[in-house]
Nucleic acid binder design. Sequence first.
DNA 1: GTCTATATCGTGATAGAC
DNA 2: GTCTATCACGATATAGAC
Lengths: 203, 203
Amino acid sequence: MNKDLSTEAKIKEAARRVFIAKGFDGCSSREIAKEAGMNVALVNYYFRSKGQLFKLIFHAAMEDFLLSMLDVFATDLALEVKMRIFIEREYDFLTNHPELPGFIINELSRGDGATFEQLDIHCRIAETGVFKDMFRAQEEGRMRKMDLVSITTLLMSNCQFPFLGRSLIKGVHQLTDEQFEQHLVVHKQYVTEMLTNYLFPQK
Amino acid sequence: MNKDLSTEAKIKEAARRVFIAKGFDGCSSREIAKEAGMNVALVNYYFRSKGQLFKLIFHAAMEDFLLSMLDVFATDLALEVKMRIFIEREYDFLTNHPELPGFIINELSRGDGATFEQLDIHCRIAETGVFKDMFRAQEEGRMRKMDLVSITTLLMSNCQFPFLGRSLIKGVHQLTDEQFEQHLVVHKQYVTEMLTNYLFPQK
DNA sequence: GTCTATATCGTGATAGAC
DNA sequence: GTCTATCACGATATAGAC
């Protein structure tokens, strides 16, 4: 699969896999090197240190995470439709990257180098105009009046938690992997219905 | 505060603080010993190894977490009321133990010793009769017909994520600690309203 | 029970040969 | 660029004095 990649790219790919699976504290430089089929010296040759490499991977992960949202917001569909598609896309994206939210949240709370720094997420979301859409919809009475923080928290809670809390949900209900995947599919429908009902109430 | 505790208890308390704050991989035995005002030898004298001590702390944390839910379910209030109180209590509990869900979810997915083993959460919740209540409410048309897994996922998502994702929410919206605490108070109200509206729809 | 000292290992990072 | 060898350090865990 990655036979034709450069050494540097191979290490970056391996680092991404290992860091996301085990976290910064949970793995060693040697493990990353081994995963890439290299030795430790090469990792430090290309990236100077474990910390530097981590910062690179982390910021790329944040960027992926952010972009998965932005492209839906940037469309010019009606807000109600946009929301439904957002949830759909978010579930699709997280199905392919189920460990991403946990990785980001964990490493963020570890403090350290993994900060928001220059990412300026809020501004980049604002630039899509989705916040203005919401404001207008609220003024016109189509959308429930509530602050942006609560709206995004509702969306993130219901989209991200099922993936974040996978081990917990599986454990509590003693589900197999297969049963859990199936649960996700139906849960997405409930979430879509519940959120649209609540955010865009019919008089 | 803990001057009158036994050495063993002091270590256990320190270990709880450190493990929950930094995770198993994120701390050392020495750090726990230091936090307790002891040395490493004492930690291993009482608990044999870092891993043994961790198992103890983790299972106690799971138990706390579980009990915070069970005592509400065990009451004989009407299901609709029970739900509202559950959310209220869960937010109260998590306000006092905000790092608990992240700790549990993380360490669960680390695999290792931190499993559900004999906890049998599903049975202990079932014993409170809350699942039967739900079944009856669904039969009588008071409650939306959906599977138990989805119901609990909705509850956990909306109660736990705001605490789990604290760093993410704060970062995205550039909130201060104070602003975030305030957000939690209003968010709890939205969650309560949204979930009761959805789970117990008025015809 | 509590301490110091130590054994053994794995870690991050680099020096230096090729 | 890539490797082997190595350094300095901190980790877990234990031995043994008191």
